[in-house]
Amino acid sequence: MRYELLGSLRVRHAQECFSLSAAKRELTLAALLLGSGQVVTKEQLFTELWGGRPPRRAMAAVHVYISQLRKFLAEAGAGEQQVIETKPAGYVLRRNGAGYDTDDFTAAMREGRAQQESGHHEAALDSFERALSQVRGPVLDGLAEGPMLSSFAAWVEEERLECLEFSVEARTALGRHREVIGLLHSLTEQYPLRESFYRQLMLVLYRSERQAEALQVYRSARRVLRSELGLEPHRSLRRLHQAILSSDRLLELSAAG
């Protein structure tokens, strides 16, 4: 049995995949899964499900959702195991050894960072790609609005973008910089305020003998940052710009920091 929260919430068992059709039940299970092993209070569930305005019969509704989730999890592979326990203050979800895609994602990221720092770029790239494969889309398909779930969704997105950066770095270190030009063009368009993607794009363009395009990327980044934030590019981006202008030999050896 395996819980998957990095996208729409689903539970896998053997070759079958089980999903919840009702948003409130999905949010309830997601909140319990985030707090697995610990009590998720009734008040926390009210906030995740209804924000600051729970309905008059909120507690009765939560009782129904929990009952339905127990039946769902039994059918999804938990069998007779007691997965959701009732406590005086709320509920506890026991994973009982079930897999969890978030654990797999963080483990792959941790391995990739260690391998990258050790100079094992091929192994690092494999780890980062394995981590990225766990993320199927926005957490809960963007349904999360309460503080617990929305914070988790924001964390996942930040970690995913960082993983993309690490993946690009690994490919660049392996001399496979031309492979990521298209990806980085797309990322700078999707995340125009994230300077690291501009920096990586400038470097790979320069290494691909496209110096003029690399300089154009800097001009575009500077224009966006000044327009949106009233700021000049970070000094690391400015240093890389100067290095490209002077055809610094160090750019052939390592990325600008």
Rank of each mutant, 00 (worst) to 15 (best):
R207D: 04
S220W: 06
R194W: 00
Q200T: 01
L73C: 08
L225R: 10
G112C: 02
L125K: 02
R53W: 11
R235I: 12
L140W: 11
G257H: 13
A98N: 02
M59C: 09
G146V: 06
L69H: 01
L93V: 12
H185D: 13
H177P: 06
L161E: 11
Q38A: 15
T86Q: 14
E80K: 12
E252L: 14
V62D: 01
S247K: 13
A108Y: 01
S19W: 07
A255W: 04
A221C: 13
M148P: 00
Q82I: 00
A22D: 15
A170M: 12
A98C: 07
R176A: 06
Q116F: 13
L184V: 08
T106S: 00
V180D: 08
W155H: 09
G119V: 03
A78D: 05
Q115D: 02
E43R: 15
A78R: 02
Y100S: 04
Q116D: 08
A173T: 00
G119K: 10
G230P: 02
L231H: 14
S208L: 06
F72C: 11
E16T: 15
H185Q: 14
V204Y: 02
L174H: 10
S167E: 10
H241A: 06
E75D: 15
G175H: 07
H241T: 09
R207V: 12
E213Y: 04
A89T: 08
D103Y: 07
G99N: 09
G37K: 12
G146Q: 11
R160E: 13
A114Q: 13
V156F: 15
Y91L: 02
A30E: 03
G99P: 05
G230H: 06
M59A: 15
R57M: 08
S127G: 13
I84R: 05
S133Y: 06
A60R: 13
L250C: 07
L205Q: 04
V139K: 04
A108Q: 06
A221L: 04
A214I: 02
A14S: 12
